[in-house]
Design a protein around this nucleic acid. Sequence first.
RNA 1: GCCCGGGUGGUGUAGCCAGGUUAGCAUAGGGGCCUGUCGAGCCCCAGACCCGGGUUCAAAUCCCGGCCCGGGCGCCA
Length: 425
Amino acid sequence: MDKEGRVKVHGWVSEIRDLGKIRFIVIRNWREKVQLTLKRGTSPSNLFEITEKLTQESVVEAEGTEVKEKKAKAVDREVLPESIKVLSISSSKLPLDPNWKVPALLPTRLDNRPLDLRRPEVQAIFKIEASLISGMEEWLRDHGFLRVFTPAIIGAASESGAEVFKVRYFDREAYLRQDPQLHRQLTVIGGLEKIYDLGVNWRAELSHTPRHLSEFRSMAVEMGFISSELDTMRVEEELIKAGIKRVLEERERELELLNVELEVPKTPFPELRFPKIYDILEEMGKEIEYGEEYDTESERLLWNYVKEEYNSDFFFVNRFPFKVKPFYVMKEDDTWARSVDLLYKGLELSSGGQREHRYEVLISQILEKGMNPKNLEWFTKFFAYGAPPHGGFAIGIERLVMKMLNLSNIKEAALFPRDPERVLP
RNA sequence: GCCCGGGUGGUGUAGCCAGGUUAGCAUAGGGGCCUGUCGAGCCCCAGACCCGGGUUCAAAUCCCGGCCCGGGCGCCA
């Protein structure tokens, strides 16, 4: 706004209310709602012609004077336009209504995501995600972590046993990574001591749940010269805390819009360990066989337990049975591993812990898993040339956002989500 | 992948179990009236039973198959 109160505004037409001799056009952009008020006799007469055939969701730009004491209630600003430019006319049959007078179901919304995205509530999710990430990245940078990019196309599908997408790689077969983990380890072995990779992962599992995506992003951290898996846990909880803190600093309005009450979590996060977990679950009426992995219901039960005992939405689970974890995790003893999951509101957010860095032990664990060391040689051979103790974790971004904002489906936390059925738009 | 539930105008729903009116309602759309609307209001108009087969005098409704979608479990982040 300049001294005379002249302003230039733009946006998508949200509402047009034509009362005959007065016409209200409400436009919306990613910051605010502005009402353009046109009066016969007062406003330039060509404005009525220009806006005669205007439709909802058309894109306009207007210049005029801002009304000092606006009479419009449901908008942020009111402008008396002197000129209006129609930049794009929207077709009048909309596949969903961004004004949300009639809510659309999730599949309809995702089929028409760019229209869905015009809703301030939907934009809020991604604004919050951006703040979350920037808070986390800043914390990592401040604590000496270096951002790196590890490959998305990998030549061997050996990371965790999850289903992988095959891609044609010239005349060979290759795979999309499920997790950047092994290359993160090789990077630390390469001497970049503290790194993170913020990138995409793919899973070809036929999962039909509100918490799975075929394509998701993770904040994946790896660090050398740790004394134990506890070091990775301390980094992880501070990282989460820093992200949430940033959200609270920058996105008060968006949190309010989504009706979310968020607090900076207290650290350290509670830690539950195997085998004590079996006792906790048994007390809650859930029988899990000793030495076995727990199931989805157990995750929720453990959350209830932690909520009651520690009043925390976050908690670590440590010392998983080695038999349910991949070959690369470091054992604590013959049965249990220094393998850590972080759970948030009963959902697994990340896996991590300390990795086995001793070459001979690594090879023997591969054999113990019944795998052929030859197939993993591309990875293991570098452990023979000096590998520091190291560990890390990978936090699923969409899962963190989903739980933080109490979204009922993870697809809401992905701009253009991919699942077994959906690759478009 | 297994189990359960569901597909009705552009969107969201009622009707289905107990087969039979012109398939109801809301909102969006088109037309009209209105100089302060703001979930604008009032009047008028137009708009739909996922596909295929079967049962029946008659199918949105019952049966079978297909396709699509949602949820639970498993797997995982």
